[in-house]
Design a protein around this nucleic acid. Sequence first.
DNA 1: TTGAAAGCGCTAACAT
DNA 2: ATGTTAGCGCTTTCAA
Lengths: 349, 349
Amino acid sequence: MVTMKDVGREAGVSAMTVSNVLRGNNNVAPQTAERVRAAADKLHYRLNTTSLSARSLRVSTSRNNTQRGTIGLAIFELDRPYPAQLASLISQAAEEHGFQTVVQQTRISESNERSIIERVSNQFCDGLLFSSSRLAADEIEQLSNHRPTVLLDDDRPQQDIDTILTPCEQGAQAAIEYLYHSGRRRIGIVGEDLKNSEFVDNEHDVRHRRMTGCRAACDKLGIRWGDIRIIPTQWTDTAAREAVHEYESTIRDCDALFCMTDTIAFGTIRGLKDIGLDVPNDVAVMGFDGIEMGETMVPSLTTIAVDIKQIADKAVDLLIKRINDQDGHEALPHQRIVADFHIAQRESA
Amino acid sequence: MVTMKDVGREAGVSAMTVSNVLRGNNNVAPQTAERVRAAADKLHYRLNTTSLSARSLRVSTSRNNTQRGTIGLAIFELDRPYPAQLASLISQAAEEHGFQTVVQQTRISESNERSIIERVSNQFCDGLLFSSSRLAADEIEQLSNHRPTVLLDDDRPQQDIDTILTPCEQGAQAAIEYLYHSGRRRIGIVGEDLKNSEFVDNEHDVRHRRMTGCRAACDKLGIRWGDIRIIPTQWTDTAAREAVHEYESTIRDCDALFCMTDTIAFGTIRGLKDIGLDVPNDVAVMGFDGIEMGETMVPSLTTIAVDIKQIADKAVDLLIKRINDQDGHEALPHQRIVADFHIAQRESA
DNA sequence: TTGAAAGCGCTAACAT
DNA sequence: ATGTTAGCGCTTTCAA
């Protein structure tokens, strides 16, 4: 690495003069400055910014105004539409505040999450955004050395921490009611995943919360919960498609299916086509999330369209507030925000 | 800011002992270590990594044994299937080598890319993966302080740098030939984007390379290039759908459409449905990329299925080799690798 | 098992 | 106009 000392030696001046020249201080003789610039150029000198910050921590000079922060986002999957869209929107929201976002994939593994915090977030992020974390809030608190943190869709009752939630109960309830009011009476739910109980470790899980909404709808509408058909599947399109095949007889008994995510709905519609059922004539299909793809697909997807941009914006706003108020002067109480949604009424239901 | 000195004072030891405890060096008495940890916790101590790197620039010894590396991936969009899948696979490949991946979205903006390198990658990444970069290789080289870098899908002829490419020419040629050999004679191409020429600044652009493949196929098959219909559109599903509407008369003149990406094909199929054309009976549709969604959609998408996993694996392998051989002892020549593909023959063509 | 000293690259403050 | 000194928070080295 080429240092200012090296450049100084080449130009026959001290490192200090090099520093002055390179920062445009006008207390250097023009011809000296020219010599220094030539030397820097020749040696391919680059300012080492890390050493800069060591000083600027205390000094907080002009340079600190330009240097903005970094947000770490830990998300369970990068290659599914919902988390991908969320990550993209968060990245943009942060950018508008002058923050850079670094995204990391957890694959819903605790050890991955630990590694992310310890090896990356902890090293250089000013704040953390954790989507569907497996870690308890106090462990995050510990591992992250008390960095500002906002959780996404983690509704476990924990000690003070900010969290932003998708409207699981409300949305699921609205979906069932929508199907019912459009005249459907033999309703099925695709997406409970009892086989995969390792991921369902508490009743505050997204899955459970959506199920709770379904039950609430049934109670309200006077449907016996036992009459609802449940089609279990993992939360991917291919698994959902296979589930439709596997549970064909159950499916054929339904005139409407509520899928716990849009991705599941996507696979479900494909599965229905495979077994010769028409959407929405034979079976109405409804999703949950409101991913962009739902509008383009054939048939277009009626769904609980969560305001994903709102989630991104609020998460970033809140996190940046926490970052700027590290010492808790303002003592904003910890928030629990539930995002808005609307029913995107399209072709599939 | 709380420093090691502060923690040391609290625990009644020197800063050095604090450093040893916090890095897990086992040359500290257990009860002393415990006291130090308690003090650090109490004071909410945070390691200041900026000062770290100043030293480790030169030293890079023990840190590297225990701590594995970090790869920075800069990618143009997070919420489109192809880049999302690529990012996910790269992240997994890196994980298998014990590397953590941090993903950042460039939105194809030069200033974003600069900011990513300067503010993040440069600070703590051992190597960089740049997908469809707008920056010239030598600028990356400069900005990154000569960190190991592998480019993805950037075929500009540049001074020595590794690059991994999608098989644009070969794949596009194969697509046109496939359509021709299945009996289609009125072929259209969806996805040239002449309006958006700011992004087409050189003939080594992915767009141009795919077009080149199409021309090669025409030459080989004896089709006059002028007979090929071109439907311009931006590379998103919604834009493609609108393009179908806008160019309806051109479209109705076609019996086959080659779309420059799967996402475009997705929107195109929707657009065709809108104007009452059946896929594949009225119009065959073929895509390019091989994203997973293509298999599930209705109709399932015949496409040039690029071996995305291969791209991810090779990129990560190569980058890690470069990282481990920083001083160029082995002098592996710079690579230009073109990924494999196959034709995924499905319903749409 | 512990800590003192030196120094990483850079710059503010103070000489010369 | 130029250079010297000191010190940012941390770690390596080496002495106690």
